[in-house]
Nucleic acid binder design. Sequence first.
DNA 1: TATAAACTATGACGTAACGTCATAGTCAAC
DNA 2: GTTGACTATGACGTTACGTCATAGTTTATA
Lengths: 252, 252
Amino acid sequence: MNEYKISSLAKMAGLSVRTLQYYDRIGLLKPSKKTDAGYRVYTEKELLKLQQILFYRELDFPLGSIKLLINKRDFDMVKALLKHRQMLEERNIRTAGLINTIDKTVRKLKEVKTVLKDEELYEGFSKKEIESIKKEVKEKYDPKVVKESYNSVRHMTKEGFARVKEEGEQVSRDFATLMGKDPASDEVQRIVARHYAHINNYYKPTNEMYRGLGKLYVDDDRFRAHYDKYKKDLAFFVHKAIDAFCDKLDKK
Amino acid sequence: MNEYKISSLAKMAGLSVRTLQYYDRIGLLKPSKKTDAGYRVYTEKELLKLQQILFYRELDFPLGSIKLLINKRDFDMVKALLKHRQMLEERNIRTAGLINTIDKTVRKLKEVKTVLKDEELYEGFSKKEIESIKKEVKEKYDPKVVKESYNSVRHMTKEGFARVKEEGEQVSRDFATLMGKDPASDEVQRIVARHYAHINNYYKPTNEMYRGLGKLYVDDDRFRAHYDKYKKDLAFFVHKAIDAFCDKLDKK
DNA sequence: TATAAACTATGACGTAACGTCATAGTCAAC
DNA sequence: GTTGACTATGACGTTACGTCATAGTTTATA
């Protein structure tokens, strides 16, 4: 019977020497024998077994399972295959979902492909204000968070931008008219819900994060200025309203 | 701004403490500061950044890529997403292929599993003939061996059997063209190996079982007829070839 | 036959993204 | 002042190998 040294078998099977040594070590494929010098010697028998191994490996079976599958003669192959199939299917479903999420995200980003110039983005602000905002945004806040909304805002069409901006302004005005009411009241909470949905155009915050965002409206000068522009202390009111909103979410 | 200790942030984000410590270590998410005692202190800023991280993580981005994505200001998000999408799609296609392979394999195995009754296996033979064949096979050859291959053959459906025949036909033709050569020669042995691999689709015979199957090809009229249909005495040739194959396996 | 080239074995370490365990220091409460 | 909860860190395990270094073996060649 022909005998093969490790690199021959490796070449035949398309594996590396180190891989075969590894398979030996974990007991997946032992050589037929070893020479006095400790060299591994394989025969056709091992080649055939290796083919079986590679079949399962191709199916993404973990080596530990393969070891059981090919060594136990009474192992229920069909059951193992079906169980594995189940797992592959779940993996596929999940991956399909991820692709979908990417598509949605990309659509959102692309829909707004036309790049707005800074002047358009910050229309209403003076040049100096623009610079200071940009600088502040860059230095003070989390780069990515700000960048994402910054970019998504920057890449909007004028129409898209106008729409979002209008939406945001309406929400702000609504908050302004309701100031003084109980932040936890239904009418205020309805506006918060709209705000929350608005925010979700840009990213999907957890409850805690949304709460944090509300706090940021007060702590951050630029945000506070934005709201307080509508009405004095509106930022604080919005913060409280968001807090109440999150309280309710948490309680559920 | 509110300050959170590591377990608070972990709970909020649904991660483990160890994971956050890990993210700190690899520079993915550094705490806002550290206390004198070395305790990590996080704020809402980190919460927001973490949310971004989790968004990409959900999409199976490796953490290293996420680090670049959220830290490099000029990183092209759309490009990165589309590239990732490409990868996910390839993964999905491959997984779908694996599922398909499993389905085909399981179909085969299930056909094999259904037990054929003797009458079906030997349809066309009389009861007496059946008994005589069984008796002969049992007595003439190593009882255990023959019984093994016998039984494994018995467990096929008609359809399964037809499929085996169909798929085995190519192998048969190859044997036919090589008849006259030394059954132990490399070229013949290669075909035997293919036959062996083919058989292995259905069950995993021991060497002895495989040898018994070879004998069965000669001793059983139906099998013999099958091979001799291709060429006179082909069954005997195949038997010899399988014998030589098993000799080599045994010799080790 | 001596030597160089090619091959082999083995241990150690690295990978990704954490989990687990052990050890030790820290903080708040009773 | 002690207990209990919390934190930090290092070490090791996980999967399926790859890479590198070191050392011994076989083979080819001069």
